[in-house]
Every structure is written in C-alpha cells, then in structure tokens.
Design a protein around this nucleic acid. Structure first.
Lengths: 328, 328
DNA sequence: GTGAAAGCGCTAACAG
DNA sequence: CTGTTAGCGCTTTCAC
C-alpha cells in the first residue's frame, strides 16, 4: 500500500505538504493541491489511520462492552451506538463480556491497550470502583452510577411505577415480578423497588422472582417461569423486567393453557422489536435507547471538544400499551 | 500512560529488553525478566497496541460490515463472529452499511485505512468486482461468490427445497413465497429457485412476492404482507425467506383472522430466537450461523498462518419443525 | 544475555 | 505557501 512518501515523490512535494492536503490544514496553492490529489488517486492512496493515531494520540475508536450481543435489547443498543458514533467519525470495537468478570477485565485492558477514546460499559460484574481507565472516559450505561465515572440510566423507578400501576388499573390483585439476576446489583433493581412500593400502596399481593445468572446468560427463562407459575396460585398479573422474559412468559402460558390477557395481564420492559411479534403483543415500558446511545457518544466526545456535560443522567421512560393487558 | 521507555528506565534496562519480555522472544535472564515485570506492574503498564500495529504491520482487527445490526439474523451472526474472533485475538470493528452503496464504500475504505487484517462483508450493494481491498482478505458472507474473493454461503437451494417440500407434504396447494429484495441479487435467490422447482415438480400453484428495499431497511413488511394476502385468494402455505418476515406474517394473519397453522401453514428461514417466541412457533430452515462465523474468521486468519483453505464454501442447512406447520 | 540504531507512516513545530 | 526536523511507542536487525 502506498504511503505518504510515495505520494509526495510522485507529486514532487514533501510529505508535509501531502499531510497538509489530507488534513486540509494551512495554506496550500490550488496547483499543488491538485497535483497531490492526482498522485493520491493514481496510487489509490489510503492514509494509514494507525500511524495517524500514533502521532495524534487519538484513535477515534470507542470500545463497547456488552454482556450479550444477540440479546434484543443490546443489539438495538449497539445499533444505535454505532449509528451515533459514525456521525462523529468514531469506530466501534465490539466486546462481548458474557457477563463474566474475567472477560470484562480482559476487554477493559484491551480497550486501554488500544488507546480507545472512550469506553461504554453495559456489563456489570467488575466492581466499578476498581476500574481504572486512566484518562480514558468511561460511561456506565444502565449500570449503577459511580463517582468519577460517567453514567446514563433510564428512569427505572418510574418504569416500575408505570408498569405496576397499569397492571393494577387493569384489575390485577396478585402480581408476580420477574426481576433481575440474583446477587447482581443494577439500576434495574429500581424497577423492583417501584413495584413493591406501588403494590403496597394499593394493597395488592405481590411476589418477586429473580433468575440465576445462567438463565440470563443463556437467555432462557422457561423453566423458571414455569416453576413460578405452578408454585404460585391465582396469579393475575406479571411484570417482567424485559420483553424477552415477557415473550417467554407468553410461551409458557400457552403451554400451560393460561390465556393472556384474559387470565393474566402481562407487562414487559425495553420496547424492543419482539414485543410486537408475539401473540398477544406485549405492553411494555419503552426505554429511550436512541437518546441513551446518543448521549453516551456525546459524553465521550465532549472530553475532546471541551464541552460541558453532566456526569450523570437519568432519562424518562414511557408506557406503551399493547394487547397483553387488554381488558375487554 | 507509561511507555516502554518508562518501564525500561525504572527497571534499569533498555526498551529492547522490555520489548523482549513483553513478546517473550529471545533469551532473557530470570533476574531481568522479573525486574521488568515489577516495573511494568508498578507503572501499570499497558503496551500501546497502536504502536505495535504500526511496526508489526498487523492490526489484529477484523472489519465486519452488515446491512443491519439489530436484525435478529445479523445480531446472531455478529455475536458468533465476535466470539470466534476473540478466540484468535482479533478485535471486531462493527460497521452498519444500512444496505446503501455509499455507506458500504465508505466503510470499506475505512477498513482499508485502518489496515484491518480482514473484512467480512455481509452487505450487498456494491458490485463485488469493483471492490479492491489490495491484499486484505475479504470474505463475502451470504453474498454471491466472486472470483478472487473468499465466500461462504449456506445451502440456500437445499433450504428452499426443504421448506417447500415440507409445505407440500403438509398438504399445501397454493403457496406464496416472500422472497428477497427487488433488484438485488443474492444467494438467497436460490431459495426462490428451489421453491419454483419444487412447486413445479409437484404441480402446486405458487406466487412470489419481493419486497422493496425500504421494507427491508425498516424491517417492516406488514403492509406488503397484508396486501399480498388480500390480493391472492385461498393461500394455504407461505414460505418466508426470514423468520422475521414469518413473524410478521403471523401478526398480519392474526389481524385478518386467518389461523396458522389451520388455514395457512408457514415456514421461515434462519432459525433465530424469535421463531420460538411467536404463537405459533415457526417451522424454519436453520442456518449454521456458528459454523459460518467460525469459518469466516478462519479464512482470514489462514492468510497469516499460511494455512491452506478452500476459497468458497457452501454449508448445509436443516429443517426445524415447529407449530406453524402442525397438521392435526 | 543485552544494547544501539533505524524505521513503521504520519503530524507538528519551526523556519524561511 | 512549502520544506526540515523531530518524535509518537514499539520492534527488529546487527553488534558486542
């Protein structure tokens, strides 16, 4: 592959001049400019970004670490992150931690070694206060806030309220909440808090079920759901903390011959594609994924443009009513 | 961040020696080795991969270009690619072409500029013979084979046969095939070829519907499906060329009060998660995504390990029977 | 067993 | 408006 020196020689100028036209910096006569462009075309020259990164001390790369890539919530998130990143000329390096501390650590180090301009961490096994990324900005997305690190969450408490209130308004009196993963602390726990608060306020019976980490990693909750539904009698409402779980609830209910929404009303969380592909479609809490992604990229970019930012942000959510809570 | 020089100074050796211990190359006394390690720990040194890439002329990076990230097929594919890549210490740069020629071109150039070790292209608007990646290996995944470029496909023709034969075996006599995108040539067209061949062989009436590019880009086929179903009377079988389309067929049929599988039998393609989350679950053709991903990474890696490979490979598919074609 | 020197491809002062 | 020089952080001959 041609280098800047080759181009310079062919155009009869110095590498500096070529660099100037590439970067559009400083004054260059139209004559030399076109000479250089010609030479670049002729050699089909592509500037070596690796070399540029080395001198500029900027890789224009953002590391994204997620626990799952094919989980619908994360794939939607990744898609939006890539999209927002591309707008500002950042590349995305994608890392799948599988929600294990070792992989997370490994990828965090990898990001550092590759001198990424920022890290977006959506995976949560490592203790955040142990993470030291030096002066690489890191944003914790839907993870507990940590002082000195950037943070973005959706309003999980509000989401929990909206979901629970909706179920109660639909007449539910014995509600099950499929919550997060046992022993993992995450902002999504606030959905549970809200659920408890609202149930108590309305004197509604409730039950909380958490999953074990394997279920989450395999994205397979069937057994848990089935066991829960046979353990607990007379359930008439379910608040699932993701649409994926809600979709599996529908499958289990189908098998057990429980009718949704007739026998049980169901609310999910996330508002991803599948919530519109199940029968019935799923009433859910919409996360502002696009805004979250945009903000995440912005927070990182701000560091290099000296833009003022808020260290931590909570974005509002919305209730989207579909058929899984129809009442007629 | 500490550099190799800092480490060298602290350990009282030269950068060369430090480099040797990092790379485990050449003979170094245990004494200096531990001295160096100590210094590295003390400075929490992380080798600068950008600098290494520049000297080694190897970025250990693979560019993955897809038309959609959150499409269930691609997110599953990306997940598998990341996984296989990580095993061989490659990083993934993720690019979303949105199936437009300009973006594809832009990302291809970006990959070249970043001196990726390989490109996996799953997006198909550019004319492949126009793509010149120099000596960067490129694998076309589920795209038409092109001489001089690596290629991987699943056996689309076989898949089309399996799907169509299964529908016919289930008693279908008037079958609609929701095929690919108008004006785009892709190996998936072989599903259509097979469909036609099998229908003809069995004297079964058939119809073929293609989508316009917008539908694909928005992943929204509802209107097309609805129109088709109202245009064509007495349809009793549908072969959709993706599970996503099939899932939307189920939604449309629900609205139109058409019962699946009673009135219409339905077969999808891909075997992604959603095919198990719809009601009824979707009978589908399973693509060997994991093997395809593994092979893709292998083909690229082979170039650097001087391993012999086949330029083009077609991998077999399987029929997975679920409820959307139940006959009782 | 270890070091000195050159170079990977590019950019950034500093001159002129 | 253009060139000279040094340097980004690392690896790789070639010496000793």
């Amino acid at each position: 592959m041609a280098t800047i020196v080759d181009v310079a020689k062919l155009a009869g100028v110095t590498p500096t001049t070529v660099s100037r036209v590439i970067n559009n910096r400083g004054y260059i006569s139209e004559k030399t400019k076109s000479k250089v462009h010609e030479a670049m075309d002729q050699l089909s020259y592509q500037p070596n970004e690796i070399a540029r990164s080395l001198t500029k001390q900027r890789s224009n790369t953002i590391g994204v670490i997620v626990p799952h890539i094919s989980h619908p919530y994360f794939s939607k998130l990744i898609s939006n992150l890539e999209n927002e990143a591309a707008k500002k000329d950042y590349k995305i390096i994608l890392c799948n931690s599988k929600d294990t501390a070792t992989k997370e650590k490994k990828y965090l180090d990898m990001c550092k070694s590759n001198r990424v301009d920022g890290i977006i961490l959506c995976s949560g096994n490592v203790e955040y206060n142990m993470i030291n990324t030096g002066n690489i900005p890191i944003v914790l997305l839907e993870k507990n806030f940590e002082k000195g690190k950037l943070g973005i969450q959706c309003d999980n408490y509000q989401g929990g309220c909206l979901a629970t209130e909706h179920l109660i308004k639909c007449g539910c009196k014995r509600i099950v909440h499929f919550s997060g993963v046992i022993d993992e602390e995450m902002p999504a726990d606030n959905r549970e808090k809200a659920f408890i608060d609202i149930c108590n306020k309305n004197n509604v019976e409730y039950f909380i079920k958490k999953f074990d980490i394997n279920a989450y990693n395999e994205m397979n909750y069937y057994e848990y759901i089935k066991n829960t539904l046979s353990e607990i009698d007379g359930v008439d409402g379910i608040f699932a903390s993701s649409d994926l779980i809600a979709a599996q609830v529908i499958q289990v209910c189908y098998e057990l011959n429980i009718k949704i929404p007739k026998d049980i009303k169901l609310v999910g969380f996330d508002d991803v594609e599948i919530s519109q592909l199940t029968t019935p479609t799923i009433t859910t809490i919409q996360q502002p994924i696009k805004e979250m992604a945009k903000l995440a990229i912005h927070l990182i970019d701000a560091k290099y443009t000296n833009t003022e930012i808020l260290e931590q942000t909570i974005l509002p959510v919305d209730l989207v009513v579909r058929r899984s809570t129809s009442v007629e």
